[in-house]
Write a protein that binds this DNA or RNA. Sequence first.
DNA 1: CTGGATGCAAAACGTTTGCAAAGGC
DNA 2: GCCTTTGCAAACGTTTTGCATCCAG
Lengths: 137, 137
Amino acid sequence: MQALLERLRARDWRLTAQRRVVAEVLAGDHVHMTADEIQAAAAERLPEISRATVYNVLRELVTLGEIREVVLDGRARLYDPNPDTTHHHLACDECGAVVDVYLGEPPRLASDQTHQYDVDRVDIVYHGRCPHCRARA
Amino acid sequence: MQALLERLRARDWRLTAQRRVVAEVLAGDHVHMTADEIQAAAAERLPEISRATVYNVLRELVTLGEIREVVLDGRARLYDPNPDTTHHHLACDECGAVVDVYLGEPPRLASDQTHQYDVDRVDIVYHGRCPHCRARA
DNA sequence: CTGGATGCAAAACGTTTGCAAAGGC
DNA sequence: GCCTTTGCAAACGTTTTGCATCCAG
C-alpha cells in the first residue's frame, strides 16, 4: 500500500496548503490522532489553519476512503491513515491508546443473522488495558 | 437470562421512582434506545424526571454491567438492556436502526496481536442498510 | 437521621454550519 | 474567472457537572 500523500496525488485531488499539511501529518502508518492533535501538528507548519478546515479535510478523506475514523466511547474520534478494511483496533480503556490488529479471517455474519440488511463492513474494537497503564496501576 | 428489573432487585440496588421507571423503560430485549428516547418514555410515567438523572442511572447500569452502551458514529449512544457480551450489533448507516446479532464463535485475538494488552472484551458492529431504507432508495 | 439520589441550569465537549473572503486551476 | 476551499465565529446536539434539596433505608 502506497503512502497517503502519493495516493492523493494520483487522484487529482485539488491541492491546497492546508490539505497538504493535514495529509502530511497523517503520513505514516500506525498513527491514530484526534482532530485536535492533527490541527496542533498542522499548525506547527501552517499556523493559520482553522479547525473547520481540518474537519472538512478529514471528512473528505474519509469519504474518499483514504483514511478511516475510529470511534471510541467517550473520546474524540481518531483518524487512521491506514484504510485497509481488514485491519481492526485494540484500544486501552484507561488512556485511549489504539493499535492496529489483524485477524486471520474477518467473522462473516451468518445468513440467518443478517435481518435482510445489506452488510458492507465490520468494525471490530478490542478493549483492554495497555502495558503502560497496567504497569502504573 | 432474567429480566433487568429482577436482576436489579436481586442486587440491593437502592430503589427510587426514577430508577425504577428507567429500568422499566429498558425492560424487554431487542430494545435500543437513546438517552433522549428513554427520558421521553420515562417522563410519560414520571413527568418530572430530569435528564441528568436519566444519564446518571444509565451510567450506573452500565458500570454495574446490567446494560450495554452502543456507540455509533455521529449518533447519540444507544442503551441495550441485553448485557450478554457474546452478542453484537448490526446497524443501518442510513436510519440508525440497530439489531442484535450472534456469532458462532467470537474472534479471539492471536497472541502475536495483543501488543501486551490485557484484552477483556470485543465490540463488533456490522454496518449496512436495513431493508426499509433499501426499499425507499 | 444520614448519605446517596435528584432536579435544575449551566458548562463542557466535539463537531458542524453559514457566510464572506481568498486562491487553485 | 470560476468554483471550490478557507477562516471565523457562532450554533449544534449530546453528555457532564455543581450545588442545593429531597428521600429511601
